[in-house]
């Protein structure tokens, strides 16, 4: 199977890709044919029948030709009905997951993705899946509508608050593939990226082993740094002193910050935890109360690791 990208389409890495690309390419050549036909006729008629004298009249007035008109009604009709059947077959295949599919839960939030492996109790910010294994994603959003798009797999589905929407795929080769959010969701919509990492069955088993305890062999600061990008803190809080949607973490530890609605708070363990669990309760002055609460999302161990990481950012 040729899986490299072409002029029109990106790299292929799922079982659907061939069917989708076949539809695309078939239709592409049909449209090239009609486009060239029309532009050629248009150009030819313009050159051939250009007005040479100002008072020149048309050389014939042809008002209609029923046979011709019926033909160019019928032929496109037949073509599009064929395309309909082709698209429908491919689509139902994309929508109905095989019964042996492995389920992974996906949560979209402004502006990060998280993936939960329910059986293993793992939560991760990239999607790691074994190759040649049908995967069913059960997706929901905690805020607005997002959309989960993997170009290399030719699949996409909206991620909707208050309900589950699912998609499935089976990767055909190992590698790292881009994931985009394709439903506009606000400020950092275009940064809401992640990756699908397709690995062999053995690598997947090893990864599960390591991922079930992500803090193993790491200091709290190191683990905190991983959580910082994995849990989406990175979208709003910088660690280099630049002001983002939320206050920067650089040098904030131990300082006294003014709060919205008056008062001040010292950034210590208690404040850090409070701000993660109930962010709206003590918002730093000058910032919007838009951070989602992480109550039930972060474990105590993770809160401690993040706190340690913030403390380390002098």
């Amino acid at each position: 199977m040729d899986t490299t990208k072409s002029f029109w389409l990106p790299e292929k890495a799922s079982t659907f890709a061939d069917a989708v690309d076949f539809g695309f390419n078939l239709y592409y050549w049909i449209s090239v044919f009609f486009f060239v036909l029309i532009v050629f006729l248009m150009a030819w008629f313009v050159v051939r029948y250009i007005r040479r004298r100002p008072d020149q009249l048309a050389s014939a007035q042809i008002t209609h030709n029923t046979l011709l008109e019926t033909t160019w009604t019928a032929i496109p009709l037949l073509i599009v009905m064929g395309l309909f059947v082709l698209g429908m077959k491919g689509y139902w295949n994309m929508r109905v997951a095989p019964s042996n599919a492995m389920q992974i839960d996906v949560t979209g939030r402004k502006w990060a993705w998280s993936f939960d492996y329910p059986k293993e109790g793992i939560s991760n910010d990239t999607l790691v899946v074994p190759v040649h294994q049908p995967i069913r994603l059960r997706m929901t959003s905690v805020d607005v509508i997002h959309s989960f798009f993997i170009p290399a797999f030719r699949t996409k589905a909206d991620v909707i608050p208050g309900r589950y929407h699912s998609l499935w795929f089976e990767a055909t080769k190992t590698g790292v593939f881009q994931v985009f959010c394709t439903q506009y969701c606000g400020t950092n919509h275009s940064y809401m990226w992640t990756a699908v990492k397709v690995v062999t069955a053995e690598e997947y088993a090893a990864w599960l082993e390591a991922a079930s305890d992500p803090s193993k062999g790491k200091t709290p600061e190191e683990f905190g740094e991983i959580l910082y990008s994995k849990k989406g803190c990175v979208a709003c809080h910088s660690v280099d002193g630049s002001v983002g949607i939320g206050p920067t973490w650089k040098g904030i530890w131990g300082t006294e910050v003014p709060l919205e609605g008056g008062g001040e708070a010292i950034v210590n363990e208690a404040y850090a935890k409070q701000s993660m669990m109930e962010p709206a309760s003590q918002v730093v002055k000058g910032f919007q109360p838009i951070m989602p609460p992480f109550q039930g999302v972060l474990s105590d161990k993770e809160v401690d690791a993040l706190t340690a990481y913030i403390r380390s950012l002098k």
């Binding site: 599009v80 395309l83 491919g90 689509y91 030719r154 996409k156």
Partner: peptide, 13 residues
Amino acid sequence: ILAILSVDIHLHD
């Protein structure tokens, strides 16, 4: 082409 269901899934948005 956007009406072809399977292809639209890729091209949508």
